[in-house]
Simulated assay, not measured.
Amino acid sequence: MIGYGFRAVASTVLNETGFNPDAIERQIVHCESNELRGAYNLA
């Protein structure tokens, strides 16, 4: 399994257990809304 697979499993399980879908997506997404911060944050 690769990183995308783990994210898909986590998203599915968290959505099925009733977590806030917006919070789940915010945690899983790997894009920073601030371009400058995103350019330097490689986490």
Rank of each mutant, 00 (worst) to 15 (best):
I24G: 04
G5W: 05
P21V: 15
Q27F: 14
G5L: 03
E25K: 15
I28F: 06
A8I: 07
M1V: 03
F19W: 14
L14D: 01
L36M: 02
E16K: 15
Y40L: 13
R26T: 14
H30W: 07
A8Y: 03
V29R: 15
I2L: 01
N34W: 00
R7Y: 02
I2H: 08
I2E: 04
Y4Q: 03
A8S: 07
A23C: 12
V9P: 09
I24A: 07
L36Y: 03
F6M: 06
S11H: 00
L36D: 05
F19G: 05
A39V: 02
R26G: 10
F6G: 04
T17Q: 08
N20F: 05
Y4P: 04
G18D: 04
F6R: 09
G38M: 01
A8M: 12
G38I: 06
T12S: 09
L36I: 14
N20A: 15
A10T: 12
G3F: 01
N20Y: 00
N15V: 05
L42H: 04
N41Q: 09
I24M: 09
A8V: 13
M1K: 07
I2A: 08
F19P: 04
G38Y: 04
L14A: 11
L14E: 00
G18F: 01
H30K: 12
Y40H: 03
A10K: 03
Q27W: 10
L42A: 09
V29N: 14
F6C: 08
V9H: 08
Y4L: 01
M1D: 02
P21I: 08
H30L: 03
E32H: 13
P21M: 09
R26L: 15
V13I: 15
A8W: 04
C31S: 14
V29S: 13
P21A: 09
A23V: 15
Y40F: 14
G18P: 04
A23E: 15
F6K: 04
N34C: 11
G5P: 00
